[in-house]
Design a protein around this nucleic acid. Structure first.
Ligand code: ATP
Length: 672
DNA sequence: GTAGCGGTGCTTTTT
DNA sequence: GCACCGCTAC
């Protein structure tokens, strides 16, 4: 193997053998690269791939590390066990389900299914005297308390005082929910963690994992929560071969319990820890790092380390104000077209945002200009109503007790509403051949009988005689088609998605794998034009974690968006928003553009706009001086948008500097 | 009991 | 843009 592209400390980490190690380092310092090399090096030294466990924050990230390691040394790297905490926990439960009294045919509820089950239970407890939180708040409450290991009461008092008097009802609903999940053979995301934690208290399970995995590696350790950290510590053999990699400045998942104490107290938890620090950034040009260094100085706890790089540039990051989000969108499209003319590939460009919907206007402009893009973060492909419809059929076949999927499918039938569904759901979890006939007899006289009969016959046959996933897809598609066309006015547009789902389904031989993989690793959304191999990336900052692009546009940086208004009056949350900005800035290698529209629409439908304020993180002169500030204006002769220095709030820039960098066709020069 | 209409109210981040 | 609620007509 060739280690010449590693620096001294990276090499030290790559060559590290036994015992606990913590690699703590700033953005772009090569943490992920180090993991890639360590995997490759271990395999090269003859360690069996089965004895290495690599946990990362998405399956894609884990697979990418293994693919890169394979190319570096030995294709065997592909066989290293890699995945997310949740996917690892799923495999553990798959193997040891009997120890926790679950059958083998359990299923996993995603957030929306779990909300639906909670809602079903909630309906029994709505009263005229006490107000209950809605299903999504209930689900958030439950998950928050689980992941942060905090008490419901204190969380309610601080965040939802209006529901404090409903605490007993809420607790009852949660208990019912737990019972119902067991009856239905279902786990939600949090259950995967909690049952795994429980399983690891069994000697049998402990022996199994400890005999299986000698080396455990975890990427992005700053975003690990207490339960996950607990699971990790129970995986290790006596040698304690754990290598955790992380950056406390980039902790952005505290809303699901992640906390940096696991990094900070690592060497207390694991005696004889070797700490390796990586200092140099190999990603960004220095002016971008100057900005990120300045921004993170506002972090209240002293976690900042100063990033430096050998990549010089005279170009400061841009801070660009626009009239509104539409101008922001049009300018970005124009800028991208310029970059394309200069030979840039779309895959080297990304647009980052705090919340997924911030790119609504931009998406419209991109479509107008035929610029292909993928959207990462926000609502997922499988969350679309018409996709959930189809998946519900599959889920019933895979776990016939799944009443949430039953309910979804039954509601498709014309003439069947909540009352009929609820009647049917009482019987469905314990169906057998006899009771099916009894059940159907009851509805013989109804108009919808033939439809109901058709569905039950289909499910009965499909459960008995398994077909290939592709075959099954065809059948489900045909069965669902009349409902689909009736339910959605825009079914033509939506049928493209069904085709895509079919392609995805055809990659699987086992129905169960198809369903669980989509649940554990939800596909974000598909490219607007899947045939283009080079597409622009639109992503939430959260989903941009660990990634990098030559050119990065960060859009709609206004107070209330970043930091999100939900973080106001809460220092902890506000600090996390600051770290988000830090993560966003440090994704850029060469060009960074930060946008601030002066007006935003309050709602996408509404016509009234609101005047915006500068993000509180980008207010200080010291910060602003590290950027090139300007304003987007339209040239009435050419119709092109151009940057201008007519700023009122901010110091004007010197004119030479501006005219050089603002004309859309002028390329930016770097001294790399 | 169900379907469909219009009005209202609100949008973080993810496995 | 979308989910949720209440109302009304079948
Ligand atoms: N020693 C090195 N020499 C040259 N380039 C390097 C070196 N180490 C890392 N790089 C490059 O620096 C970039 C950032 O590396 P990497 O993604 O591994 O950083 P990271 O620490 O994981 O970043 P983040 O904290 O943002 O996830 C990559 O393009 C990588 O190839």
């Amino acid at each position: 193997m060739d280690f010449s592209t590693l620096n001294t400390n990276q090499l030290k980490a790559v060559m590290f053998n036994n015992g606990p190690a913590l690699i703590i380092a700033g953005a772009g310092s090569g943490k992920t690269k180090t993991l890639v090399y360590r995997v490759a090096r271990l395999i090269d030294d003859g360690i069996s791939p089965n004895s290495i466990l690599l946990l990362s924050f998405t399956r894609k990230a884990a697979n990418e590390i293994l693919t890169r390691a394979s190319k570096l040394s030995n294709p065997k790297c592909q066989y290293v066990s890699g995945g997310t905490f949740h996917s690892f926990c799923h495999s553990l439960i798959k193997r040891f389900h009997h120890l926790i009294n679950y059958s083998n045919s359990f299923s996993i509820f995603d957030r929306s299914e779990s909300e639906d089950l909670i809602n079903l239970i909630r309906k029994d407890y709505v009263s005229s005297t006490i107000d209950l939180p809605n299903k999504s708040t209930l689900s958030n409450l439950l998950s928050h308390c689980f992941n942060t290991e905090s008490s419901l009461e204190s969380y309610l008092i601080d965040n939802y005082p209006q529901f404090v008097n409903a605490i007993e009802l809420i607790t009852t609903i949660f208990n019912q929910y737990k019972i119902r999940k067991m009856e239905l053979s279902v786990f939600d995301y949090d259950d995967l963690l909690s049952f795994s934690k429980l399983l690891l208290t069994h000697k049998e399970v402990q022996d199994f994992v400890q005999n299986s995995y000698r080396y455990v590696m975890i990427d992005e350790y700053q975003d690990t929560n207490n339960i996950q950290a607990d699971i990790v510590s129970n995986l290790l053999t006596k040698e304690q071969n754990i290598m955790a990699v992380g950056d406390d400045c980039q902790s952005i998942y505290s809303f699901r319990g992640a906390n940096i104490s696991h990094i900070l107290n690592f060497s207390e938890q694991f005696k004889n820890t070797t700490i390796i620090k990586l200092e140099q950034n190999y990603r960004s040009v220095q002016p971008i790092l100057d900005l990120s260094n300045e921004v993170i100085k506002f972090h209240s706890s002293a976690i900042s380390k100063s990033l430096y790089s050998d990549f010089k540039s005279t170009q400061k990051p841009f801070y660009i104000e626009s009239k509104n989000e539409w101008d922001q969108a049009k300018f970005i499209v124009q800028k991208i077209q310029d970059l394309l003319i200069q030979g840039t590939s779309l895959s080297d460009i990304a647009v980052l945002m705090r919340s997924s919907w911030h790119s609504n206007d931009l998406e419209i402009e991109l479509k107008k200009s035929d610029i292909p893009f993928i959207k990462v973060g926000g609502s997922k492909f499988i969350e679309a109503s018409h996709i959930k419809d189809i998946m519900a059929y599959f889920k019933i076949i895979s776990n016939s007790k799944d009443i949430i999927s039953w309910s979804r499918v039954l509601m498709l039938i014309e003439g069947v509403g909540p009352k009929t569904v609820s009647e049917l759901l009482n019987i469905i979890p314990n169906l057998n051949n006899q009771s099916i006939n009894q059940l159907l007899n009851k509805y013989k006289s109804k108009k919808f009988f033939s439809e109901l009969n058709k569905l039950f016959t289909f499910f009965n046959n499909s459960i008995k005689s398994p077909a290939s996933v592709t075959e099954l897809f065809e059948k489900v598609f045909d069965l669902n088609l009349p409902y689909f066309e009736k339910k959605y006015d825009d079914y033509l547009k939506r049928s493209l998605d069904l085709n895509n789902l079919k392609t995805i389904a055809s990659r699987y031989t086992l129905l169960e794998d198809f369903i669980t993989e989509l649940t554990l690793d939800p596909i974000d959304s598909l490219s607007t034009n899947p045939n283009d191999n080079s597409v622009l990336t639109l992503t939430t900052i959260h989903s941009a974690k660990g990634l990098e692009w030559n050119t990065v546009f960060i859009i709609s940086i206004i107070d209330g968006y970043l930091p999100s208004s939900k973080s106001f009056d809460n220092n902890e949350k506000e600090q996390e928003e600051l770290r988000l900005l830090y993560v966003a800035i440090t994704r850029a290698k060469l060009n960074l553009f930060i946008f601030k529209p002066q007006q935003t629409k309050s709602f996408s439908s509404s016509t009234n706009s609101m005047t915006t304020q500068h993000s509180r993180f980008l207010m200080e002169d010291k910060t602003l001086n590290l950027m090139e500030t300007s304003f987007i204006e339209e040239d009435y002769q050419t119709g092109l948008l151009e940057l201008n220095s007519s700023f009122e709030t901010y110091p004007k820039l010197n004119f030479d500097q501006l005219s050089n960098s603002t004309k859309p066709s002028t390329s930016i020069k770097y001294n790399l």
